[in-house]
Design a protein around this nucleic acid. Sequence first.
DNA 1: GTCTATATAATGATAGAC
DNA 2: GTCTATCATTATATAGAC
Lengths: 190, 190
Amino acid sequence: MATASRQEILQAVLELFRECGYEGTSMAMISERTKLGKASLYHHFPGGKEQMRDELVKLLGDWFRPRLEQLKDDATPPRGRVKVFISELDSFFEGGQRGCLFAALAVGPAENGCRIELKDLMNLWISALAELAEKSGVPANDAQTRAEDCVAQLEGALLVSRIVGDKSIFKRALRQAPDMLFGSSRQLES
Amino acid sequence: MATASRQEILQAVLELFRECGYEGTSMAMISERTKLGKASLYHHFPGGKEQMRDELVKLLGDWFRPRLEQLKDDATPPRGRVKVFISELDSFFEGGQRGCLFAALAVGPAENGCRIELKDLMNLWISALAELAEKSGVPANDAQTRAEDCVAQLEGALLVSRIVGDKSIFKRALRQAPDMLFGSSRQLES
DNA sequence: GTCTATATAATGATAGAC
DNA sequence: GTCTATCATTATATAGAC
């Protein structure tokens, strides 16, 4: 008789979603991965796949929010704070190659349900970086675009790394992130 | 009695794939969008959804390849060539907001079939930009990373634009692309 | 080349025993 | 809390008429 905690199930589902996407992941696949019968899965998650997705999105927020808060803690210098955050992102995305839940859930019909949460969370991510850049002396307008571009660079690098099978692209995006936010050399908008 | 050419069908399927992904798009959805019965779709594409996907990937290559070739045409200055290419990318991605076939087909089980083609095509894209940067005087090593980062920035901006519902992020990525490739101000690897 | 009707398989979901 | 067995629905795919 197999057994698994809610947390273990969600971890397995997270891996599947990141690899195969929401629509590409079936309850049968989750059953196989967790070694639990489908009925057991519905015992833990009466709402099925949708509930699993919603709980994973919530966990995504639970991972991000405190770390974005920490970015605002003025006890240490901005660059140091960003470096900590970047290294946490590295483990979170498992060094690239694995796919991102944001990207996985961004495909699919618009009545996706969790799209608003994803949007809010990504905006929170961006604005935390923007605020940090601004505190470091970057003009407000520029700080916002830098933060947007930085998140785009990270997400894009994750995708490109995955497609061409070279995680060094993502690793470099992580390394360059501080300069994208604070660097004086950045081209300004014309 | 409805009627539609192969090309019209593929156009509809492309839109659906970009919006809903491969797994998220059903033959029923394609049938509804094209106003053709499912049997008619199988008449045109005996291999079903998989064949449609493979033909779309081929069309993706048919769009990219000649334009990447044109990037190598030394008749005009590099920056001019890139500007033309960038403006074509703009229409190709419909100004952001719509999702990218690369990204849509990057999710899903690894036995995806078209993953090798997508990888080759993206590598071709990268190496064309790298070659161009090198011709403009950028050192070979740096040219390769600039090209990778540039494609990542574009793809990431497309994703972030889509998620937060602000296409200006993608528009800016397009505008900044030339400087990412040629700009002297870029931070070098340490 | 399109249609209606149908076959077949997979999907999400539930009932009820243990 | 897990299981086996089963349901209803949707999916891909095909047969055959027009």
